[in-house]
Design a protein around this nucleic acid. Sequence first.
DNA 1: TTTAAAACCAAACAACTGTTTGTTTTTAAC
DNA 2: GTTAAAAACAAACAGTTGTTTGGTTTTAAA
Lengths: 182, 182
Amino acid sequence: MALMDAAARLFADQGYSATTIRDIAGAAGMLPGSVYYHFPSKTALLLEVYREGVAGLARRVDSAVAAAGGEPWARLEAAAAAHLETVLDQSAYAKVMIRVLPDDADDGAVAKELAAARDEYESRFRTLIGALALADRADARLLRLMLLGALNWTQTWYRAGGASPAAIARDFVKSVKQGVSP
Amino acid sequence: MALMDAAARLFADQGYSATTIRDIAGAAGMLPGSVYYHFPSKTALLLEVYREGVAGLARRVDSAVAAAGGEPWARLEAAAAAHLETVLDQSAYAKVMIRVLPDDADDGAVAKELAAARDEYESRFRTLIGALALADRADARLLRLMLLGALNWTQTWYRAGGASPAAIARDFVKSVKQGVSP
DNA sequence: TTTAAAACCAAACAACTGTTTGTTTTTAAC
DNA sequence: GTTAAAAACAAACAGTTGTTTGGTTTTAAA
């Protein structure tokens, strides 16, 4: 859908509140009012774009994990690589999920739905990390939040041309697995 | 300054473009027009708040590192702890530096200044990590970006009452140092 | 070729945006 | 107590915001 594509790209590039309905309509080749034939409000448009982003990301990660075999660290690495490839290269929808905070939606009920969608996605990493054999003092929750934070923050510094998203993800996972000390 | 305090809090809580001059003026107890006696534009106000955030954060981190002794990992841990305490608990100004992206400023020249201010701050971590003894295949740049990303992303999930900012920072540094494998 | 739904246009709405202007109040030094 | 600068007010400005309304075109099935 051209309208959602345009909205996803603009939300990802400029953020939610800096993006106007006129921006979106123009990028989709229509007039502002026409947007309201397809979506009842700007917030509803964000919600659908966000959900599509979460769904697409989940699909890619799930399939990467399924193809990764049974070794827990390999499965986590596959998930991290798929996450980063999608968020940095493949999907403007997935970018929105990282760039737009749930409370950017002016509607409180929608904010909760955005947060819930993201939580459901991230639960995959809870499972993947739960399957790891960890050192006694390692905190699985903080490990998950550290890894996801490091992955998501790449959106602020990543530029095409350097290390590939998959290579970055592999490096991150390896670092937390083995440590960087000699 | 009450005006900058109000702006810092609102920028940190709602983001830059979702915050209006009227919001800021109201929170500071004055009328919208009065803001322009102190700052020539909304963008200029952001720039000063952002700079104050960077300066305060740099001050705290520098002093924590100086007090941490000479062991490189202890110095990095002290920097990470100071960073997180400031950003999560102490300073709305520092929060702005994390929440507001440079290109949120409508003015391109200001965006560059914001990015430059953040870069100057982060160079400290380049130095701190440069002093570490790393395993052969460890990438110092990715290590820095991973750690800063994990730290900065805490702003999206941290809630007072759980692990303290300093404890989170210590956990992150320990994880990348030693790894979490048994 | 008729028809009806889907999609879009054209134009406006009220509210809100950053900002400017001229005037008044507050502050503090003389 | 006078004075002048600093700070704030009151009111508007031009442009933009999300959204609505009623009419027109497009699409595709009958």
